[in-house]
Deep mutational scan, measured.
Amino acid sequence: MGFKLLSKLLVYLTASIMAIASPLAFSVDSSGEYPTVSEIPVGEVRLYQIADGVWSHIATQSFDGAVYPSNGLIVRDGDELLLIDTAWGAKNTAALLAEIEKQIGLPVTRAVSTHFHDDRVGGVDVLRAAGVATYASPSTRRLAEVEGNEIPTHSLEGLSSSGDAVRFGPVELFYPGAAHSTDNLIVYVPSASVLYGGCAIYELSRTSAGNVADADLAEWPTSIERIQQHYPEAQFVIPGHGLPGGLDLLKHTTNVVKAHTNRSVVE
């Protein structure tokens, strides 16, 4: 069995187990497998329904001669939608809004960016022009300005110390501490036991640490421990890039980060 097929099978099995364990909360999309990078042309966006009122959005972007996937989250909030992270750029984010209108038909009224990198804030200006209120932590807003990236308009308070959590509509926002970046936030959907790890969490097929220019490698494993301790009931975990899975993604990420750190020390 090929690795790609095995990865998709694991996603399907995880979703099936969740649907059985929580039949009222989960209505997993039966329309197909989780979209992969090879299936999404740059400039297009796919939506994948995880649970009743919960979707991931998947886009792709060219970077350094390669094409990478990027995940975000959409959560229903009454007759409105909360968006977590842009679709990595203005063109993708405009396509995301169009796809949401086509498939869901509810307005996106608020959006949260989970850290300051372009795959999370690139497209904020498109959201703002569409009347979406954009939010991020003060740290993310400051770092985005320093980096020359787009800056969300509103500040999220109460997320300055490791372990801080605040309720934001249908989700809980959690600051686990520094990891992929010093400002990275985690998003949890309690009604569906869905954990969105953003770039602080890796997919299972990833074996290298990737972009760690703004990471705190020493603190990252401790931050992941905080996530595990705060959300032990999480059933569906979405990484910032690639295929979702279960809580095993947290341990896998820790292993990859520690291996990278150990290699760096040896070198």
Results as ranks from 00 to 15, higher is better:
residue 2 G to K: 12
residue 2 G to C: 04
residue 3 F to E: 07
residue 4 K to T: 13
residue 5 L to C: 11
residue 8 K to A: 07
residue 11 V to L: 06
residue 11 V to S: 07
residue 14 T to F: 14
residue 16 S to C: 07
residue 16 S to R: 13
residue 18 M to K: 04
residue 21 A to M: 08
residue 22 S to T: 10
residue 22 S to N: 04
residue 24 L to M: 08
residue 25 A to C: 06
residue 26 F to K: 07
residue 26 F to R: 07
residue 27 S to K: 12
residue 28 V to K: 09
residue 29 D to P: 10
residue 31 S to C: 13
residue 32 G to D: 10
residue 33 E to C: 14
residue 37 V to F: 08
residue 40 I to K: 08
residue 41 P to W: 10
residue 42 V to Y: 05
residue 42 V to Q: 08
residue 43 G to C: 12
residue 44 E to N: 08
residue 48 Y to A: 06
residue 51 A to V: 07
residue 52 D to M: 08
residue 52 D to H: 06
residue 54 V to Q: 02
residue 54 V to W: 02
residue 57 H to M: 01
residue 58 I to L: 06
residue 60 T to H: 07
residue 61 Q to K: 05
residue 62 S to E: 10
residue 63 F to M: 05
residue 63 F to P: 04
residue 63 F to S: 09
residue 66 A to S: 05
residue 69 P to Q: 05
residue 71 N to C: 03
residue 74 I to G: 01
residue 74 I to Y: 02
residue 77 D to W: 09
residue 79 D to T: 10
residue 80 E to L: 15
residue 81 L to D: 00
residue 81 L to Q: 01
residue 81 L to Y: 03
residue 82 L to R: 02
residue 82 L to I: 13
residue 82 L to A: 14
residue 85 D to E: 15
residue 87 A to N: 03
residue 91 K to L: 14
residue 92 N to K: 13
residue 93 T to L: 00
residue 93 T to M: 04
residue 96 L to P: 01
residue 97 L to V: 04
residue 97 L to G: 03
residue 97 L to K: 04
residue 99 E to D: 15
residue 99 E to F: 15
residue 102 K to Q: 14
residue 106 L to C: 13
residue 107 P to I: 15
residue 107 P to M: 09
residue 110 R to D: 15
residue 112 V to C: 03
residue 120 R to N: 14
residue 121 V to G: 00
residue 124 V to P: 03
residue 126 V to F: 14
residue 127 L to C: 00
residue 128 R to P: 03
residue 130 A to D: 12
residue 132 V to Y: 00
residue 136 A to P: 03
residue 136 A to W: 03
residue 136 A to T: 04
residue 138 P to G: 10
residue 140 T to Q: 02
residue 140 T to H: 02
residue 142 R to Q: 12
residue 143 L to Y: 12
residue 143 L to P: 03
residue 144 A to N: 06
residue 146 V to M: 14
residue 147 E to P: 11
residue 150 E to P: 10
residue 150 E to N: 12
residue 151 I to P: 09
residue 151 I to M: 05
residue 151 I to A: 08
residue 153 T to L: 09
residue 155 S to N: 13
residue 155 S to M: 10
residue 157 E to A: 06
residue 158 G to P: 15
residue 159 L to N: 00
residue 160 S to A: 14
residue 163 G to N: 14
residue 165 A to V: 12
residue 166 V to G: 12
residue 167 R to M: 05
residue 167 R to G: 07
residue 168 F to R: 02
residue 175 Y to M: 15
residue 175 Y to A: 13
residue 176 P to M: 13
residue 180 H to L: 01
residue 181 S to Q: 00
residue 182 T to I: 10
residue 182 T to W: 09
residue 182 T to L: 12
residue 183 D to C: 00
residue 183 D to P: 00
residue 184 N to M: 02
residue 186 I to P: 00
residue 186 I to Y: 03
residue 187 V to Q: 00
residue 189 V to K: 00
residue 194 V to I: 05
residue 195 L to K: 01
residue 197 G to H: 01
residue 200 A to F: 01
residue 204 L to R: 13
residue 206 R to L: 10
residue 208 S to T: 09
residue 210 G to F: 03
residue 211 N to W: 12
residue 211 N to G: 11
residue 214 D to R: 12
residue 215 A to S: 11
residue 217 L to A: 09
residue 219 E to L: 09
residue 219 E to I: 04
residue 223 S to Q: 03
residue 223 S to F: 03
residue 226 R to S: 06
residue 228 Q to T: 05
residue 228 Q to F: 15
residue 231 Y to E: 01
residue 233 E to N: 13
residue 234 A to D: 01
residue 234 A to I: 13
residue 235 Q to M: 08
residue 236 F to M: 11
residue 240 G to R: 03
residue 241 H to Q: 01
residue 243 L to Q: 15
residue 245 G to Y: 04
residue 245 G to H: 14
residue 246 G to W: 08
residue 246 G to E: 06
residue 251 K to W: 10
residue 252 H to I: 04
residue 252 H to S: 13
residue 253 T to G: 00
residue 253 T to F: 00
residue 253 T to W: 00
residue 254 T to W: 09
residue 254 T to D: 13
residue 255 N to F: 05
residue 255 N to Y: 04
residue 256 V to L: 13
residue 256 V to T: 10
residue 257 V to D: 00
residue 258 K to C: 10
residue 261 T to D: 06
residue 261 T to P: 10
residue 262 N to A: 08
residue 262 N to G: 11
residue 262 N to E: 09
residue 262 N to V: 08
residue 262 N to L: 06
residue 266 V to W: 09
residue 267 E to D: 15
